[in-house]
């Protein structure tokens, strides 16, 4: 069984990002970049399936600039067997990414696609669902448990009301939620070995995909600063303020 895992290069979750002074975008010059945490969970799940003998090959795919190779290498250090970079300098949006991934699926014919439910930069939470529509594959989003058996996959999904389990025929798409697993730390020898694993590069053009942005960013600005709170003397005053000032009760 072959698993395709999508990994995205994003600003490291420890970095506090700020908008550029001209408000055109977020300033990520010289910021530390990492693999998106949800994608890391996806890689971990794929590698665990391989370690259990369920999967035979794990292919990591990323889209973006040449530097995205670093995140593919990270995935390979965690246990992916090979990598594919779809290289482009164009600003990528979920639809473009989903179309490229769909083209990769057509070439690679994976039995299972595992990807993060969203990335911590755009927080769109769209690519997995769009890929499901484009590829006509069943999707199990927000997975907290994944079990493959006899040509199907049971995906336990985290939904507002609790947990929902869906049974999907393979090939299928799974997007990961936070509680699916706790990713391992890449071992240092495996980081060195990752350099020797195969990494192919292609482009959206070669895949026949138009990734031109469909959505235009007009302005990026920081959230409004929270104004100072007040202390109330007693419960009665609190209730009065909630009723008459905040108007929430």
């Amino acid at each position: 069984m072959k698993i395709l895992v999508a990994v995205k290069r994003v600003v490291d979750y420890n970095v506090k990002v700020r908008p550029k002074s001209d408000g055109t975008d977020v300033d990520i010059a010289n910021a530390k970049m990492s693999i998106n945490p949800f994608c890391e969970i996806a890689v971990e799940e794929a590698v665990r399936l391989k370690e259990k003998g369920v999967a035979t090959e794990v292919v990591a795919v990323s889209l973006g600039t040449k530097q995205s190779q670093e995140q593919i290498r990270t995935a390979m250090a965690l246990g992916a067997d090979r990598g594919i970079l779809v290289e482009t300098d164009t600003e990528l949006q979920p639809l473009g990414v989903a179309k490229c991934l769909n083209a990769i699926i057509a070439k690679e014919s994976p039995d299972l696609v595992i990807m993060g439910k969203q990335s911590i930069d755009g927080d769109n939470n769209q690519t997995g669902q769009m890929l499901g529509a484009l590829s006509n594959m069943p999707q199990g989003t927000f997975a907290s448990e994944v079990a493959v058996e006899d040509g199907t996959v049971n995906v336990t999904r985290e939904i507002d009301g609790g947990l929902q389990t869906v049974k999907l025929n393979l090939p299928a798409i799974v997007t990961t939620d936070l509680r699916l697993n706790e990713p391992r730390y890449a071992s240092l020898p495996n980081i060195m070995k990752a350099k020797k694993k195969p990494l192919d590069t292609t482009t959206p053009d070669e895949l026949g995909v138009d990734v031109a942005p469909r959505v235009q960013t007009l302005k990026v600005e920081p959230p409004a600063e929270r104004s100072a709170g007040i202390k109330v003397a007693d419960v009665a005053e609190l209730v009065e303020k909630l009723k008459n000032e905040a108007k929430v009760i």
Binding site: S34, Q69, E70, R73, T74, A77, Y185, A186, L188, I191, M192, A194, K195
Partner: peptide
Amino acid sequence: DQESHKALLEALGRYVNER
């Protein structure tokens, strides 16, 4: 190899800081 060295230090730094 600069790329592997950077990845190695990042992994080590992450283990040091987070664990």
